[in-house]
Every structure is written in C-alpha cells, then in structure tokens.
C-alpha cells in the first residue's frame, strides 16, 4: 500500500499527538479526546456536505454510537472497548441503511429537516426510557482493551486518548482516499449537477445512500469514543443543539481538507472552554460571533487560511 504526502503528514501529526498525550495534563488530554471524537462526527457531516446535503441530525449516529457502547457494557456484558465501538458502528450502519432508503429521496432543506426529525425521535425515545436513565442517561461500565484493564482515571484517559487519535488517523486516511475515489468525486459531481450524473448512467440516489451510510458509521465511532472518554451517555447526544454544534464545527473548518474538522474541533473546544470560563452567562454569544466572523471573513473555513498560504507559495 502506498501513502501520499497528506497521509504521511497525518500519521506524523497523530504520532506527535500520542506522544504529547504522555506529557500533557489530564484536563488537556480530556479536551483533546472530546475534540477529536467530535471531529469524527463532523467528518460524517462534511462527507454529506460534499455531496450538497446538510445533516441537521448527525447527533442521531453520535448518540447511537455512544449508547451502544454504554448499553453493551451495562446490559450485554461487552466490556471490550474495541468490540463495543465496532458494535456501535455496526448498529449505526444498520440504522443508516434503513433511514437512508427514505432520506436519500430528499434534497436541500427537506433532507436537513428529516435528518433532524429522526434525531429528535431518538431523543424523545431516550427521554421516555426509564431503564436507560431517562434525561439523566447512565454511566458507561469500566472497559478493557483486549482483556487489559487500564487504571481508572488517568490510565483510562490516556488509553482512550490514544485510541481516539489512532481511530482519527485511520478514519482520516480512509476519508482522504474516499474523497479522491469514485464515490467521493461523484458525490461532488452530484452536488454540482445531479441531472448530468443521472445521464452518465449513475444513480445519484444510491451514491448518496452509500455516502450516508459511510458518514453514519464514522459519526457513530465518534459517539462511541466520546462515551468511553466521558464515561457517561445521555439523550442530549441526539438533541438538535448537539447536531448544530457539529455543523458549526464543519463550517468552522471548511470542506477543503480531511484535517479541517480536527483543527476546527480543537478551535471550537478552546473557544467554548474559554468563553464559558470568562463569560459564563453569554458564552453562546462568543460562539455566535466566532461563527459570524468565519462566515464573513473565511467562507471556506479555517482551512482556507492554509490553502491560501499554499497557493501563495506556489505563486
């Protein structure tokens, strides 16, 4: 297998992050873990944005990933983190394969609102489920990795951080290839001209279906990792504000590069943390101004700063 420059750079950054994790304070590791896990969910949003669809309900798969990990340990005796994450992804794929049959018939605002509707249906079900802790959710059982149980606290934090970074690396490489592969480029083609795609003998609907399922699996992995990191799941994971946050991060980063969601998730995490710290009653306003600034000055997201720099170098 051959790796290109982007993939090698991603691997180098991932190794640096893992090493950084060994010398960083616990709070920073936790913030980075959550940021990277959310970035995976955002990758799912971005995959769909590339095809011209905006999902207002990606929280659905984030929640499915999280709850499957939580329920696996709590009710089905699945304590291995890798197995639980894989199960979360599998459940998300099955759900996406069912919902995708309906959702991929719709475009624009109809797709956005339908995806939101399914997410809110799950939220409603979880809120009414006493056995799943209703609005409080429930704690994730202590987990192991291939039979090894990391020390509760710093040890498990370090482990889940490493797992998140490595998962992020694998997913980033796969998505990087995916965007250059047939389905990735044809998704962009669908965004630009669906009629032409149809008259080339392809089914835009089935291409979007494949993309929707793939995006769901990536987002579920992000949800599962978040559950492992926080040790808790609750219905808020499927709430519309959570999905809104993913769109925020997607816009912040832009669609220009597979690394953009990771950078945006870190920036978002920093802005939100400091906004809550310094203006606890109006932190949302700070986020609002940040988004406003990005849309006005960097309509193609933070990554456009890097791509501008690159094109400047070339010139």
């Amino acid at each position: 297998m051959r790796f290109d420059k982007t993939e090698i750079s991603l691997a180098a950054v991932a190794i640096a992050c893992v090493l950084f994790g060994f010398v960083s304070p616990g709070w920073l590791i936790f913030l980075m873990t959550i940021a990277f896990a959310k970035a995976l969910v955002v990758q799912g949003v971005v995959m769909q944005m590339r095809s011209g669809l905006v999902s207002f309900g990606q929280g659905l798969f984030y929640c499915i990933g999280g709850y499957t990990v939580g329920m696996g340990g709590q009710f089905f005796g699945i304590h291995d983190a890798i197995a639980a994450l894989a199960l979360g992804v599998l459940v998300a794929i099955v759900v996406a394969m069912i919902l995708g049959l309906l959702l991929t018939r719709y475009r624009d605002i109809f797709f956005a609102m339908l995806s939101l509707a399914f997410s809110m249906i799950l939220f409603g079900i979880l809120v009414k489920s006493q056995s799943l802790g209703s609005t409080d959710g429930f704690n994730v059982h202590n987990w192991t990795v291939f039979g090894w149980a990391p020390e509760v606290g710093a040890g498990s934090q370090q482990t889940v951080f490493t797992m998140t970074v490595l998962s992020g690396l694998v997913i980033a490489v796969l998505i990087h290839r995916y965007t250059k592969a047939g389905i990735g480029v044809i998704c962009e083609a669908i965004r630009e001209n669906e009629v032409r795609v149809e008259y080339l003998g392809l089914s835009p609907r089935w291409v979007l279906y494949g993309n929707y399922v793939a995006a769901a699996s990536v987002s579920a992995l992000g949800g599962g990792l978040t559950a492992l990191a926080t040790g808790h799941v609750d219905p808020e994971m499927a709430y519309w504000t959570t999905s809104g946050e993913f769109i925020f991060i997607a816009l912040l980063g832009g669609l220009g590069h597979v690394a953009a969601p990771f950078i945006a998730a870190i920036v978002f995490s920093v802005v939100r943390t400091y906004a809550i710290e310094f203006v606890p009653h109006t932190w949302q306003m700070i986020l609002g101004f940040t988004l406003l600034g990005v849309i006005v000055f960097l309509p193609k997201g933070l990554w456009s700063l890097v791509s501008r720099e690159k094109s400047g170098e070339r010139a």
Binding site: A181, G182, I183, V185, I186, L200, G201, L202, A214
Partner: peptide, 17 residues
C-alpha cells in the same frame, strides 16, 4: 467522471478516480 461512470455503475469507495 464520465469515463468512470461508463466503466461501472457502482463507483469505487477507495481506488482513485
């Protein structure tokens, strides 16, 4: 894109277009 579409109605997930 047109050449890839002509080759197969099922686009590849990982091999470069």
């Amino acid at each position: 894109v047109a050449l890839a579409a002509a080759e197969s109605p099922r686009p590849s997930f990982l091999s470069p277009l």
